[in-house]
């Protein structure tokens, strides 16, 4: 318990203090803000996929809905952005709860198809409902978040704001994972029938966690909209849902810190691979294949192996429990 808290505190300190010192503003900082947003999204999906064992290919839709609800409420209707953000998360959580009941009855490929379908529907609605969303050309002029006269109008300010929120979500997810709910989710993942005969209402719990993951995605979407101040449908398409899935799997299913590692790698990789110009997509694909073949437990497994190896070779014993 204490160790878990210490680990989190170290991680938070690293994020909040060290990183921006090295990157005084500019492009890299912008990428690091996206690492924060993607970490939050990956954690949301990991609760569903890594813990409960339920796939979703529609996470980008919840992300997009959060972004657009915030954009429309604040810009078109003049709502307070903070209230709009909370409203969006609650409304989208409720939506996920309602559609979750029929959808999460499905398993495996069928669940993947159904969530994919949901993602496509949302994408089309955002694209076609031009009066409301601005359609394919996007929705400009979203205000930055502000507290009184203090406006989150720079990369640095948004870095702290968004990473603050991500750390908050991270801590909640860590707590949840180590609670009776986390155990019940893992039980459903291992054997739904065995979980049910122990009195766990698997159907309800799956829907609840689906709603939680939708709320986290929505929150990330709202923060994104107020940071970039412009949203367009292409950000929230099927492609991004797959990218999120990749982050979670590459990072390590069921590991919260793994989601951070996966989000970091997948967000930074295109920037790094840019040097390969037209061949970057090949390197990207090859890397993902190699990773899944040799590190099926994800980056977090690789990290744990390396850590144990180091400790052994320095004469220590015992293992890390990342």
């Amino acid at each position: 318990m204490q160790r878990e808290l210490l680990k989190f505190a170290l991680f938070a300190a690293l994020v909040l203090v060290v990183a921006p010192l090295y990157f005084q503003g500019g492009y890299i900082l912008n990428v690091l803000v996206f690492v924060g947003i993607n970490t939050m999204l990956a954690i949301g999906l990991n609760l569903l996929l890594g813990f409960a064992g339920q796939i979703s290919l529609g996470q980008a839709a919840f992300y997009g809905l959060g972004a657009y609800v915030s954009a429309i409420l604040t810009t078109t209707h003049g709502f307070n952005p903070w209230l709009a953000m909370i409203f969006a998360a609650l409304a989208i959580g409720a939506l996920a709860f309602v559609i979750g009941f029929p959808i999460l009855k499905l398993k495996g490929h069928y669940l993947a198809m159904a969530t994919l379908g949901f993602g496509i529907i949302v994408y089309i609605v955002i694209n076609e409902y031009v009066d409301l969303t601005g359609g394919p050309s996007g929705f400009p002029g979203i205000p930055n978040l502000s507290i009184g006269s203090f406006s989150f109008d720079s990369d640095m300010k948004n870095y702290y704001l968004i990473w603050g929120a991500t750390l908050g979500v991270m801590l909640l997810a860590i707590n949840l994972a180590r609670s009776r709910i986390g155990r019940a989710l893992r039980a459903i993942h291992d054997s739904e029938v065995a979980a049910q005969v122990l009195g766990i209402n698997a159907r309800l719990l799956k829907v609840q966690i689906f709603a939680c993951s939708a709320m986290i995605s929505s929150l990330a979407g709202s923060l994104y909209a107020h940071y970039i101040t412009f949203v367009s449908p292409s950000t929230f398409g099927f492609h991004f849902s797959v990218e999120l899935l990749t982050m979670v799997v590459i990072g390590g299913l069921g590991s919260i810190y793994g989601s951070f590692l996966g989000a970091t790698l997948i967000t930074l990789l295109p920037e790094i691979l840019r040097t390969f110009h037209d061949y970057d997509i090949i390197f990207y694909g090859a890397l993902l294949m190699i990773m899944t073949i040799f590190l099926p437990g994800g980056l977090i497994q690789g990290g744990t192996l390396a850590w144990n190896f180091l400790r052994k070779s320095w004469g220590g014993k015992g293992g890390a429990d990342a």
Binding site: L172, A173, N175, L176, S179, R180, I181, G182, R183, A184, R186, A187, D190, A195, L198, G199, I200, Q208, I209, C212
Partner: peptide, 23 residues
């Protein structure tokens, strides 16, 4: 899970904290 955690899952219905309280 560990052996102990398996039994703790069995105690799911004997405990009542919801998602929010746990998180």
């Amino acid at each position: 899970m560990t052996v102990l955690e398996n039994v703790m899952v069995g105690l799911h219905t004997k405990s009542h904290c919801g998602i929010l309280a746990c998180a």
